[in-house]
Computed example of a mutant assay.
Amino acid sequence: MAIAAVRNYFKTYGREQEILEFAQSSATVELAALALQVIPARIAKTLSFKHETSCILVVTAGDAKVDNRKYKEEFGIKAKMLSPDEVLALIGHAIGGVCPFGIENTAVRVYADISLKRFETVFPACGSSNSAIELNCSELFQYARAVKWVDVCKGWRD
């Protein structure tokens, strides 16, 4: 189970007990926001895109949408999302629980979108469709082992 891998990953930081598990699903931004009683924008969603022989993960705010032009400028290719089977095979987490933590595939690169930086804390999933952890943006960047902050989203600015 992917949440076990994420819990084990956070154990190395002494934070495994901070993973929240819910009785209800948190598989979508809206469901996660309801479970956590926060605005949907504070849900840190992890999107997975094809890139060469592996994939790129982009962690964005819950209200942000990928801007195809910005994505292509940043990564040099058109944004093409992975299928659910590809996500599971390449990342090890199923759709609804995809997160940038505890990924064994070293070819996967993680990027954090600046749409997250407007919040003191955000809530990424933890490998299952009913889990999350509260992190500040610096912690998210560190624990995700992100390559860099990017600006590839639209729809979140006033």
Rank of each mutant, 00 (worst) to 15 (best):
N136S: 05
N8K: 04
V66L: 03
G14H: 07
R157L: 14
T46W: 11
V152H: 09
R157E: 15
L57A: 09
Q142A: 14
P124Q: 13
K50V: 04
A112Q: 11
F49S: 06
T60D: 11
S131M: 10
S128N: 00
G155S: 08
I56V: 12
L36K: 06
E134N: 01
L82T: 10
I95P: 01
K154V: 04
R109W: 06
S131I: 14
C126G: 10
E21Q: 11
F49D: 02
F10E: 01
Y9C: 05
D85N: 04
E86D: 00
I91A: 05
A2C: 06
A44V: 10
E73F: 12
A79W: 05
L57Q: 11
V87I: 11
A33H: 02
A94H: 14
G127N: 12
L47H: 08
F119N: 04
T60A: 14
N8R: 06
S129I: 12
A5Q: 14
A35M: 08
C153N: 00
R157C: 02
A32E: 13
L140S: 13
N8A: 04
S83Q: 07
G102M: 15
K148D: 09
A33P: 07
V150Q: 04
M1V: 15
S131R: 10
V87H: 05
C99F: 08
G97Q: 08
A2G: 03
W149Q: 00
L88R: 05
S128K: 00
Y143M: 07
I91H: 03
K65C: 14
T12G: 09
F123L: 14
K11Q: 06
V110C: 05
C126A: 15
V150R: 00
P40I: 09
F123C: 09
M81N: 02
A23G: 12
G76T: 12
G102T: 14
V66Y: 02
E86R: 00
S131E: 14
S25F: 03
V66A: 01
V110K: 10
V59K: 12
L140N: 07
L34M: 13
L47D: 01
N105V: 12
Y9H: 02
V98M: 03
S25R: 07
V87E: 04
N68T: 13
V58D: 11
A79T: 04
L31S: 10
R7F: 03
L140G: 01
L47W: 11
E18F: 04
Y111G: 05
A125E: 14
S48T: 15
P84I: 09
L31A: 15
N136K: 05
R15G: 09
I39F: 06
A107D: 12
F22V: 15
G97F: 00
T46L: 13
V66G: 06
K45I: 14
V150K: 03
V59P: 07
T12Q: 13
Y143L: 06
A33Q: 09
Y143C: 08
V98Y: 08
T106H: 12
P100R: 10
V110W: 02
H51D: 05
T60G: 08
S138D: 11
K72G: 01
D113M: 14
T121K: 11
Y71S: 01
S54G: 07
E74F: 12
I95S: 02
P100D: 09
L135W: 05
N105D: 07
E52P: 01
A132C: 07
G92K: 03
I56N: 05
P84W: 11
V58A: 10
